[in-house]
Design a protein around this nucleic acid. Structure first.
Length: 753
DNA sequence: AAATATCAGCTTTTT
DNA sequence: GCTGATATTT
């Protein structure tokens, strides 16, 4: 039981609103939690409170997050508050929890017991295999767009048979979707969207099961509610019974994932669907100084569609937000480095500084500067551990061991390392498999001729692995498969193989670590318990005596260590590289920065067209999401915030001359300070900056000077002709062999010829 | 089966 | 302008 004094201590550290949220009665509630308002603390203390007051046991609590990182953080914090009360509680991501339910009720869900999970890459290759046969071409049938189509249908809850095609193309897409569905089913694999959809269908179809979970979970807590998509909301509604209280925490102003299906409207829908009486705003910010917060508040106030909220702080005004315009992207990068060195000298560690940008392409120039100045840095968002080729190869062998029907895994490693199984052989095998409606693996004995023995040698590697699941623990199994598959030998011979071998070693230790963290017995082999196969009668079992399922749906989940590890590998791609402990400046996109905080933040590339990005800024909806993105960026900073833009930027091989971002104009003058690189910096037009923040209508003085057809000279591009003038003083100029440029005439220095 | 040529694509992205 | 993926070559 939780210590009384500790609980008092936890409650004493909350402000009025937080306390109100934490101690809310057992009814559904919507908590609007602003940036830096102690959201995670409220979530975890709420759980502690529910347990402490004896309202429920941990068994009745489900907490769901979006990312593994958030789930882990929540568990870690709960661990410091509670001793052993965590047992029985479900904490995880939407996908992780769906996986858990599907593993428990695999039979009811019409899945093989050890189904594999496809990550985005795997899904793409599955689609490619289909497209090769379907013989379709054109932009509509690019693997990427087909996969996107399938995913969006699944997110709408539509199976291939439910699709009502609008035109010929969609008819074809629906046909591919149908083939994809049956292929996945045949191969015993499930993609990310399928985890959600399949789980929802299971709960919808199976009333006793649904009622079991609905009465079990008395409290469902949802983190980052503004990021939920329609399917996730449907899942929540299915799990919530009439006595379930949903505690939804989110911030509509930080909704930046609409482009991948997140639906902020779920916050409004939730209020009506669940007749939410408890609505609490957390507006006290514990992160940023006043100027930073005021600037962020003023910016986001430009959005019309908001629930409405204004952050406040007791931390004092602090320094003004510094704004700087530089001649070029390289100058900008150099200046950032220079300022980083100043801050370091002032005593701020590198790891407390972040350089943010709108798109990944911008990192290049910055990195170049950091290397030059020998400043340690770390770029977020590279290849993650489980996405590396050598790891995916090893995983493919393991997938085949757990599920030989997985043709994607089969194709991936049948001839890797090379063992004389050519494309021709695989084609023949594929034909046989199709003709006999079986997997590639099962088609091997049907082959004849020379190729058969090569295939059999491959099958033997898999079979040996399968056999050792009964007498080897997981790390040993992986060690032996890396050896017997020939991966080890292959990378030993390879020139660049040393690093790959190291990663394979890491895979083995990751497995060992995983077993410990998940509470598996180290010497546990294939299946965890005989109870795991009770799903034949599960309907009755669950309906009549929930205790039986309770006994075995806690940790370790009823998955074999191998299946569990494979799920882990697909659902949690791991961190991008190690070095998390080294003191380095953090470089990342604004999206990647969500949820993080730093002493000092640089937001770079604040140019119209880049941030806000021109692909998003045409309609109001898009522009408002860009503004929320800017809001997220601003609110990452604790003490120091720098905004910079460049007059000239090289992007995708084209020169860009853009105005500074309109978002800069939306910041109040009293919270900002314009900086100048040099006193007489000719490239900074002080008058232009004097206009901030009043957005003075653009005068078109330049239009008197320029006309279409005018011959001009540009220092970099040479001679050209103005083709077309546009409002906003922009023009298309044809520079002949250099190409057509879209220039802002107030910035680009053109001479008349 | 590796080496080389060609070619699209290019905002954000977790599971 | 650069990268990653595919096509073509030897």
């Amino acid at each position: 039981m939780l210590d009384n004094a500790l609980m008092d201590h936890l409650l004493n550290n909350l402000n009025t609103e937080q306390l109100a949220a934490v101690t809310l009665p057992a009814q559904s509630a919507l908590i609007l939690a602003g940036a830096g308002s102690g959201k995670t603390r409220v979530l975890t203390t709420r759980i502690a409170w529910l347990l402490k007051t004896g309202q429920v046991s941990s068994y009745s609590i489900l907490a769901v997050t979006f990312t593994n990182k958030a789930a882990k953080e929540m568990l870690a914090r709960l661990g410091t508050m509670l001793s052993d009360n965590l047992r029985g509680m479900w904490v995880g991501t939407f996908h992780g929890l769906c996986n858990r339910i599907l593993r428990l009720h695999w039979k009811d869900a019409a899945l093989p017991q050890s189904f594999n999970i496809l990550d985005a890459q795997d899904q793409l290759s599955a689609v490619k295999r289909i497209l090769k046969v379907a013989n379709l071409s054109g932009d509509w049938y690019k693997p990427q767009s087909v996969a996107h189509y399938i995913n969006s249908q699944k997110e709408k809850g539509l199976r291939a048979g439910d699709v009502r095609p609008r035109d010929h193309h969609e008819q074809e897409l629906a046909r591919i979707y149908e083939i994809y569905e049956s292929q996945c089913q045949r191969e015993g694999v499930v993609d990310f969207a399928e985890l959600l959809l399949r789980c929802c269908e299971l709960l919808e179809r199976n009333q006793p099961l649904r009622e079991h979970y609905q009465s079990r979970f008395r409290h469902i807590l949802v983190d980052e509610f503004q990021d939920t998509n329609d399917m996730q909301y449907r899942w929540l509604k299915l799990l919530a019974g009439k006595d379930t209280a949903i505690f939804a925490v989110g911030d509509d102003d930080q909704s930046i994932y609409a482009f991948r299906g997140a639906n902020v409207e779920n916050m409004l829908a939730f209020r009506t669907d669940f007749k939410v009486k408890n609505f609490i705003c957390l507006e006290q910010n514990y992160r940023s100084k006043g100027n930073i917060l005021d600037a962020a508040n003023a910016l986001i106030a430009h959005n019309q569609k908001r629930l409405g909220k204004n952050l406040r702080t007791d931390a004092g005004q602090g320094e003004p937000v510094r704004i700087l315009k530089l001649p070029s992207d390289t100058n900008e990068a150099d200046w950032v480095c220079q300022e980083v060195q100043h801050l370091k000298a002032e005593g701020i560690p590198y790891r407390e500084m972040a350089v943010l940008y709108r798109s990944n392409a911008q990192s290049r120039v910055l990195e170049h500067s950091f290397i030059n100045k020998k400043i340690p840095y770390r770029v977020y968002g590279g290849l993650r551990f489980f996405e590396r080729a050598e790891i995916k190869h090893a995983i493919a062998y393991l997938q085949l061991i757990s599920n030989p029907n997985n043709n994607a895994a089969f194709m991936r490693v049948a001839n890797f390392p090379p063992r004389g199984i050519g494309t021709r052989t695989l084609e023949q095998l594929d034909d046989l498999a199709k003709a006999n409606n079986c997997s590639l693996y099962d088609a091997i004995p049907l082959m004849n001729g020379r190729s058969r023995s090569a295939l059999e040698a491959f099958a033997r590697i898999i079979d040996q692995g399968t056999a050792s699941t009964f007498n080897k623990n997981l790390p040993d199994l992986i060690t032996s498969i890396i050896e017997s598959s020939g991966l080890e030998m292959y990378y030993q011979k390879e020139k660049e193989g040393a690093e790959r071998l190291e990663n394979l070693e890491q895979l083995i230790s990751a497995a060992a670590q995983f077993l410990i963290e998940e509470g598996y017995d180290f010497e546990q082999y294939a299946q965890t318990s005989s109870l795991s196969v009770n799903t034949n009668a599960s309907n009755d079992v669950i309906a009549s005596s929930p205790n039986i399922i309770d006994a075995n749906d806690n940790h370790p989940v009823n998955m074999s260590p191998l299946s569990a590890f494979l799920s882990h590998a697909s659902l949690e791609a791991g961190d991008a590289q190690a070095d998390e402990n080294t003191d380095a400046v953090q470089l990342m996109t604004v999206h990647a920065a969500k949820g993080l905080e730093f002493e000092a933040v640089f937001i770079t590339g604040l140019e119209e067209g880049l941030f806000p990005h021109e692909n998003s800024s045409h309609d109001k909806k898009g522009l408002e999401e860009e503004r929320r993105l800017m809001y997220v960026a601003l609110t990452r900073a604790k003490k120091k915030l720098y905004l910079s833009c460049a007059e000239y930027r090289m992007l995708y091989g084209h020169a860009n001359y853009n105005k500074h971002s309109s978002f800069i104009d939306e910041l109040p003058e009293e919270n900002t300070k314009l900086m100048f690189k040099q006193k007489k910096a000719s490239y900074i037009d002080e008058a232009e900056w004097g206009n901030i923040p009043s957005s003075k209508p653009q005068t078109s003085a330049t239009h008197h000077k320029w006309r279409a057809g005018q011959s001009v000279y540009h220092k970099k591009f040479g001679e050209g002709v103005i083709i077309r003038l546009e409002s906003g003083d922009r023009a298309f100029v044809n520079f002949g062999s250099v190409g057509m440029k879209h220039l802002d005439l107030t910035i680009a220095k053109l001479e008349r010829l």
